[in-house]
Design a protein around this nucleic acid. Structure first.
Length: 255
DNA sequence: ATGGCGGCTCGCAGCCGA
């Protein structure tokens, strides 16, 4: 099965791209971030017509997450239990016995901002949630926009980015804590082309010059990781008119 | 060169993303 994550940066604007992409690629499960839609405005009919069930947790202007699936979505839960968050950033559902958790990690803005402290606290809360979920769901997949480039090879210009938000050591330490729960970065299970990224700034012709970061990730529990047969970034959507600044990441699981 | 682009809003300027 094919399972994907994509930060759409407004589902309203990106819906035509999404529908074309679903038809072309036929992923089984798709997690979306930054839908930026109140639930009453979610395009349910269009997504149903494309052959997908969908659950979503949105808000006006910012954030918002959704899970699309060809198979039924069960035991749906939004947010992080025990962590009050007005921002809609987490959505979980069970698909075919596999727990799927869609995450939109806070950006953090800059390392000296309140938003950065929120990001670090939020990542701690996510770690607690995932530790708990892993006790109940050995087959766990956590995918989304992590807003962390885990290593320097995930950054187009590590020297220019050194110490800044998205690459700072506390963020990378939080990333390693997630992996230490028993999760694998599916992208790094395979040989990959150098300079593979999932986000490029809209400015400075960054996509054309491949000035990007790899910040969108698919984490697989140690139980699930052996069944992963590939993980790629699908850059085609970033080449279209009016693209999202993120490209989808797609993992293939056997069986 | 801290700008640049593109999304959003009780909008027409300012905030936010990454």
């Amino acid at each position: 099965m094919k399972i994907a994550t994509w930060n759409v940066n407004s589902l309203k604007v990106r819906l035509p791209h999404l529908l074309d992409w679903l038809a072309a690629r036929q992923p089984d499960v798709v997690c979306l971030q930054e839908t930026k839609l109140e639930d009453g405005k979610f395009p349910c009919a269009e997504i149903a017509a494309a052959g997908y069930q969908v659950v979503y947790a949105g808000q006006k202007t910012y954030n918002g997450v959704a899970i699309l699936s060809k198979q039924p979505l069960l035991d749906v839960a939004a947010g992080i239990a025990g962590y009050d968050d007005l921002q809609q950033r987490v959505l979980a559902a069970t698909v075919d016995g596999m727990r799927v958790i869609c995450v939109y990690v806070p950006n953090g803005q800059s390392v000296d901002s309140d938003k950065y402290q929120y990001k670090l606290a939020w990542l701690q809360a996510l770690t607690r949630l995932l530790r708990d979920e892993l006790t109940r769901y050995p087959k766990l997949i956590v995918l989304g926009d992590y807003n962390i480039a885990p290593e320097d090879r995930d950054v187009h210009d590590p020297a220019a980015w050194a110490g800044s938000v998205l690459v700072s050591e506390p963020e990378r330490a939080a990333w390693r804590e997630l992996l230490a729960l028993g999760l694998k970065d599916s992208f790094r299970l395979f040989d990959q082309p150098e300079q593979t990224f999932s986000w490029w700034d809209y400015r400075m012709a960054a996509f054309r010059r491949n000035m990007g970061l790899r910040i969108d990730h698919i984490l697989l529990s140690d139980t699930l990781a052996p069944s992963c047969t590939g993980c790629v970034v699908d850059k085609d959507l970033r080449k279209l008119e009016r693209p999202s600044d993120h490209a989808p990441v797609v993992a293939e699981l056997a069986g």
